[in-house]
């Protein structure tokens, strides 16, 4: 197992904030929209440096999406941000009509996704957003795994022309992707080559997958670990190649079983190379209040859950 060092701890939303300000410096067409959550979604620095390019909409997410679409038509590159619950489900129809169907160059940047939002509870902990966005034609869906990757993703989507959903989170989590790791939309990152099982992970679950890989190595199981940051378009080639070698797969995400990465991988395998597959995710349930770590334990999203799932997948080979 390749050794991964923790380079630091930070929240992925701060990676977004840093990426946004850098994108703003590079391109004067980059604008930011926010619905009364400026500091929470880490837009404060952008607002300070580019006040004329920052738009505070108030608590009105539907209007924010429409405004972003209108600005995109006039050549701007709008980054519209809120909590994931309010940036997706609440404004699904606005995104569908004014962004995806109209193919406007809007970047929907969603913070506080998943259980790791913590204490606010289920109203705010959306676990359906990846599925909602992935179903939408024209939409790119990205869920980076740490501070560095989120920053890279933010810079990359500023260069990409078209609708993007970028998902990130609230808690401070380990930084382990080096700044010089190349980031390409739609391109998986091979974290560890192995032969016994393929572990596919996105977002906060990538670090858990690495920890699981270390635990498995101690038990003599050689796991291949793939970081999928872009859920749509999925890097089919990387996944199929790996599963052809290992013969089984465990897919991990901080999301419902339904709709997200797990579904995407299952569909790919079902159509091309069906193999035993286990899921790490939330099984058709809402979240609840608690600390992020308590919730990850309760809902089975930790490294030891991945280890267990790997053993089950291998036993089904």
């Amino acid at each position: 197992m390749k050794k991964y060092t923790i380079l630091g701890n930070n929240d992925t939303r701060s990676g977004f904030g840093e990426g946004l300000i850098e994108a703003g410096r590079k391109n004067s067409n980059v604008v930011a929209l926010c619905a009364d959550l400026t500091e929470s979604v880490k837009m404060t620095a952008f607002k300070k440096e580019f006040p004329e390019r920052f738009f505070q909409t108030g608590i009105a997410e539907a209007n924010m999406i429409g405004l972003a679409a209108g600005m995109a038509l006039s050549g701007k590159i709008p980054f519209a941000s809120s909590f994931a619950a309010f940036a997706t489900g609440r404004v699904y129809d606005q995104i569908r009509q004014a962004v995806a169907y109209s193919n406007t160059n809007v970047k929907i940047c969603a913070s506080h996704a998943g259980l790791t939002l913590g204490e606010d509870g289920a109203t705010h902990q959306i676990l359906e957003d990846l599925g909602l966005m992935r179903m939408m034609p024209n939409m790119i869906v990205i869920n980076p795994c740490d501070f560095n990757q989120t920053k890279q993703a933010t810079l990359a989507i500023a260069e990409y022309e078209g609708p993007v959903y970028l998902r990130f989170g609230r808690p401070k989590v380990p930084i382990f992707i080096s700044e010089d790791t190349p980031f390409e939309i739609g391109k998986a990152i091979m974290l560890n080559e192995g032969k016994d099982v393929t572990i596919i992970a996105t977002g906060h679950l990538v670090w858990e997958a690495i920890v699981a890989g270390e635990m498995l190595a101690e038990q003599g199981i050689d796991a291949e670990i793939i970081n999928i940051h872009t859920i749509k378009p999925l890097d089919n080639e990387a996944i199929l190649k790996s599963v052809a070698k290992t013969g089984c797969v465990v897919s991990c995400e901080e999301h419902q079983y339904n709709g997200g990465l797990n579904d995407a991988v299952a569909q790919l395998l079902a159509r091309n190379n069906p193999k035993p597959m286990e899921f790490i995710g939330v099984d058709d349930s809402f979240g609840e209040s608690g600390t992020p770590d308590e919730l990850m334990v309760k809902y089975g999203l930790k490294a030891d859950n991945i280890v267990e799932a790997v053993k089950k997948a291998i036993s089904r080979k």
């Binding site: 539907a62 209007n63 429409g66 972003a68 209108g70 050549g75 109209s102």
Partner: peptide, 27 residues
């Protein structure tokens, strides 16, 4: 046609966004 419409209530937001972008563009 610049943006889809049909699902109602969205066009004012889009128009206001376009108007603000016009100002930014000095148009």
């Amino acid at each position: 046609v610049r943006v889809a419409s049909g699902s109602l209530g969205q066009g004012l937001s889009v128009g206001v966004g376009a108007a603000q972008a016009k100002k930014l563009n000095g148009c």
